[in-house]
Amino acid sequence: MHIVIGLIVAFIVVALYARRNRATRRCRWREDRTGDRGNLRKYKCATCGAEAYTAQKGPPRDCKSHLPPV
């Protein structure tokens, strides 16, 4: 019984994690420090070529390409 409950909890955790990262699944952001503008950091997607600036720590959380979501 404990194994079944553990498997259900693990499945729910994996499903929530996969859903959270759905918007950036296709993008592979790389930081480009030569294009920074003050506090904004420049990122370029190695997959689709989209460019984005962000003030937060880390890469953008959503895909900037014009491709339809998977």
Rank of each mutant, 00 (worst) to 15 (best):
I5F: 05
R28K: 15
Q56N: 14
Y53E: 11
T24I: 15
R20Y: 08
C27T: 15
E31F: 15
L40Y: 14
R37T: 08
R22Q: 07
Y43Q: 01
N21Q: 11
D62E: 09
C27H: 09
R41K: 15
L7W: 06
N39K: 11
G49R: 11
A10H: 00
K57I: 07
G35Q: 12
P59G: 05
R41H: 07
R22L: 05
Y43W: 15
G38N: 09
V14P: 00
V13I: 04
N39H: 10
N39P: 04
R20A: 09
T24S: 11
R25G: 04
K64F: 14
G38E: 09
L7H: 06
R41G: 01
F11E: 02
D36H: 14
C27W: 03
P60G: 05
D36K: 12
C27Q: 14
R30Q: 15
R25M: 09
W29P: 04
C48W: 05
P69V: 00
G49D: 01
D32E: 14
P68M: 02
R20L: 01
K44E: 14
T54H: 10
I5Q: 05
N21W: 07
M1Q: 10
I12G: 06
R33H: 11
L16N: 11
C63A: 00
G38A: 10
R30N: 15
P68R: 03
V70N: 08
E51T: 15
L67E: 04
K64V: 03
E31P: 00
V9E: 07
T47W: 02
A55F: 05
K44F: 06
I5Y: 03
R28E: 08
R61L: 10
R28P: 02
Y53F: 15
K57E: 15
I5E: 08
V70S: 07
P60I: 01
H66Y: 12
A55M: 08
L7G: 15
A46G: 02
